[in-house]
Design a protein around this nucleic acid. Structure first.
Length: 554
RNA sequence: GGGCUUGUGGCUUAGCUUGGACAUAGCGCCGGGCUUCUAACCCGGAUGUCGGGGGUUCAAAUCCCCCCAAGCCCGCCA
């Protein structure tokens, strides 16, 4: 497909020009691939770029391996346009199940995402992490990697101590039908109010934290109990979002199993270590101004120490580590990477995403200012159900509910994954509830249309020779999927797949409009049905990699 | 104060890592299209000093410098 063709042309061009960078790029409407290498050569050879392009094309035309590829110079640009064989090879590959998967690799990858503090329900900021992380996970599996997805449970933080304090000292009755994580948030918010009124409580919270550090059985049990309840709530939310983890790793385990002590001992030996009352690292030579504290003066470890232990453990068990973290972790992430490098350990690749805020400002669990993921899902399912009911009144209620669930999920996931991670966003109800173009449901709809055609068609003989502009445009869009998967992995940017899937749906809808399938006859009908099958399969593979249900009807 | 990220038509957004052919698309706006494979659709039109200024280059939304604005970060918190 395009991926192979690109690699092939890159090699041929390198041989022909002697250039290291052959500047091969997508040619837009001019070509399938194009190069501007003539400009660079112009300087070297002191000739006009147009002439160089012409000469290079003349040379390339003699190349035996380039048969079937149209090569032409358009001014200084050299365009490559692939012929029938490329199109038919694409369709042959794309009708097969699993299209877009890359070859199996032996690399073991561990990917960590979400890892929200268990002090309240997941909100629309947390699920940006979940959805970016889960989409990356799906892309890694599609790209042939061996992958384990982990959730790092922060079970010894101050926030959890505040929750536990609240459960001991405040009215902690759970309201009827109240979800575990919502219950915990309510107590957490109330406890924080009390602390504001009475600063003495902070002392009691500190005592709870010290008891946990010491491993006091009763207190540890209380912490574990509340955290477990909160995680149960998270798992319901994540299941509703098609997000899953293979393993939950508990922070406090890294104290108990001695890993934290072990890494602290290794850190002590670093030349950057400064042991005074505290153990800290001086990373100023790497541009970090403040000292990086590893152990408090009272001998207890800080979060950073446990996090280092966690990553040392991951590094020993996996070839590649990927963390999906909010932009607020940029500094500590960089300090962590720096320290692991000094220790000679494997360093994680960190994907940072910028914040999601509300129109009225930043979200805060403590202040109770957030839109929970559960509320979003409830609202969107309601909206989707109304929409399905209006469009498909003939379907029974369970069928409409099922479609609505998939459509709602598609809207939420796509709305979040389509934006580049480095962009901060403001949560907007109107946009989140939109099912029109540039939405997940739009892509699902194209897929459902393709399924509908195939269902009505009955058996047909596959035919791979395409003719019309709309057919060929669709085939060439289909050809890009493997390259898109590779780019998502290389750049760790899942929104690339979101953009691609939307463009694929656009191209399919244009084809659908211009080239009738079921009404055409003979060979034309067969080749269009084959193309529809290829498009349907490519849409399905793309949607599933985005974690969106490829429903057959809607 | 220092650091990181962002700034693209009224709103949202792709492209920026790898400079190159008329800057991507949606919403909204204007005009068309359902007795025809699902109109959650399609076709056409209007709308842009790519935050501002300077520089590098044959060529800058893309690279460099300065400035402005927004978000985030700078704890013996996690």
């Amino acid at each position: 497909m395009l991926l192979e063709k690109r690699k092939f042309l890159e090699r041929v061009l390198k041989e022909s020009t002697g250039m290291d960078d052959v500047q091969l790029a997508e040619g837009g409407e001019h070509a399938d691939l194009a190069t501007t290498v003539a400009f660079a050569l112009a300087k070297q050879k002191k000739q006009a770029p147009v002439k160089i392009a012409q000469d290079l094309v003349a040379e390339l035309l003699k190349h035996p391996d380039l048969a079937g590829i149209q090569v032409e110079a358009k001014g200084p640009y050299i365009n490559f346009i692939f012929g029938k064989e490329y199109v038919s090879d694409t369709i042959k590959a794309a009708v097969k199940p699993g299209y877009g998967s890359l070859e199996k690799k032996t690399t073991r990858v561990v990917l960590e995402h979400t890892s929200a503090n268990p002090n309240g329900p997941l909100h629309v900021g947390h699920i940006r992490n979940s959805i970016i992380g889960d989409t990356l996970a799906r892309a890694f599996r599609k790209a042939g990697y061996r992958l384990e997805v982990q959730y790092y449970v922060n079970d010894m933080g101050r926030q959890i101590a505040i929750v536990v304090w609240g459960f001991i000292h405040l009215d902690n009755t759970q309201e009827k039908g109240e979800k575990e994580d919502a219950h915990i948030a309510r107590i957490y918010i109330a406890a924080n109010r009390k602390i504001e009124e009475d600063p003495e409580i902070t002392q009691q919270v500190n005592e709870l934290m010290q008891l946990v550090e010491k491993g006091d059985t009763a207190t540890v049990k209380k912490f574990r109990n509340e955290v477990t309840r909160c995680l149960e709530g998270f798992e319901v939310t994540m299941k509703n979002l098609n997000v899953s983890h293979d393993r939950f790793v508990w922070e406090s385990d890294f104290i108990r199993n001695g890993y934290t002590e072990r890494i602290i001992n290794r850190i002590k030996k670093l030349p950057q270590a400064r042991q005074e009352e505290t153990l800290a690292l001086d990373l100023s030579e790497f541009g970090f101004e403040n000292k990086y504290v590893i152990r408090r003066s009272d001998g207890t470890s800080v979060y950073a120490a446990r996090d280092l232990a966690f990553h040392a453990w991951k590094g020993a068990n996996f070839d590649r580590m990927i963390d999906v973290l909010g932009a607020d972790h940029k500094l500590i992430g960089a300090q962590l990477q720096c320290t692991l490098k000094l220790l000679g350990d494997k360093v994680p690749e960190i994907v940072h995403f910028e914040f999601v805020s509300l129109p009225e400002g930043a979200m805060s669990t403590r202040a109770g200012k957030f839109v929970s993921a559960d509320d979003l899902i409830t609202e969107i399912n309601k909206r989707a159900f109304d929409e399905v009911t209006a469009r498909r009144p003939e379907l029974d209620e369970p069928a409409r509910r099922s479609i609505a669930r998939s459509v709602g999920l598609a809207a939420v996931r796509y709305d979040i994954v389509k934006v580049s991670p480095e962009k901060s966003t403001v949560f907007d109800w109107k946009e989140a509830l939109d099912f029109e173009r540039q939405s997940g449901p739009y892509i699902q709809y194209s897929h459902a249309r393709a399924c509908s055609i195939l269902d009505k068609a009955g058996p047909f003989e596959e035919c791979y020779d395409l003719e019309t502009p709309a057919e060929i445009a669709l085939a060439k869009q289909i050809a890009k999927l493997p390259m898109v998967i590779e780019r998502v992995i290389a750049e760790l940017r899942p929104h690339i797949l979101a953009t691609y899937s939307r463009e694929l749906a656009d191209t399919f809808n244009s084809f659908y409009h211009f080239d009738p399938v079921l009404k055409s006859e003979g060979k034309v009908r067969n080749r269009r049905l084959t193309l529809v099958k290829a498009a349907q399969n490519t849409l399905k593979e793309s949607l599933e990699t985005l974690g969106i249900d490829a429903i057959r009807t809607m």
